[in-house]
Amino acid sequence: MILHPPLPVADDLSQAFWEGVNERRLLVQRCAACRRFQFPPDASCASCSSTELSFEEVSGRGAVFSFTETVSGARHPYFQSISPYLVGLVQLEEQEGLIFASNFPGSEYADLEIGAPVDVEFQEIAEGAVIPQFRLRTVRLAER
């Protein structure tokens, strides 16, 4: 039995995003017409309906948007095996609503606070499978 998190499966819209992540780059869809970013990727702009979208690298800097500690009730055996674990959302500094999931590696529940700054890093969750993670900036500094 191989225990790792469920692996992301790219679709036509998200392929460029996951290719970027595999190269350790955070690429986000941006609208050529209204210049807004959006995530997850979509076929048209969620702000102005334009279909002129392209992927652009973003800073990877953001802030904790919300968080929880899943103590019990995880459904996947991998997450059952590591419970309790942190999970939540971060919002990138580029734009309101640009929101990603994260496990806040290196942090404890008590460390987390909504609005606390985070930075992107990339985690290989299984051979060849990489996902973006976001680490508290204070944790990053403390570890240096």
Binding site: D11, P40, I82, F100
Partner: peptide, 25 residues
């Protein structure tokens, strides 16, 4: 759901987390 590719790898599972996260906000 297509959105699961951006959530399931983090163990972010609706519906319990869908209640916990906005409550924390």
């Amino acid at each position: 759901f297509a959105v699961e590719q951006f959530r399931a790898s983090y163990g972010l599972y609706p519906p319990a987390d869908g209640a916990a996260l906005p409550w924390s906000q």
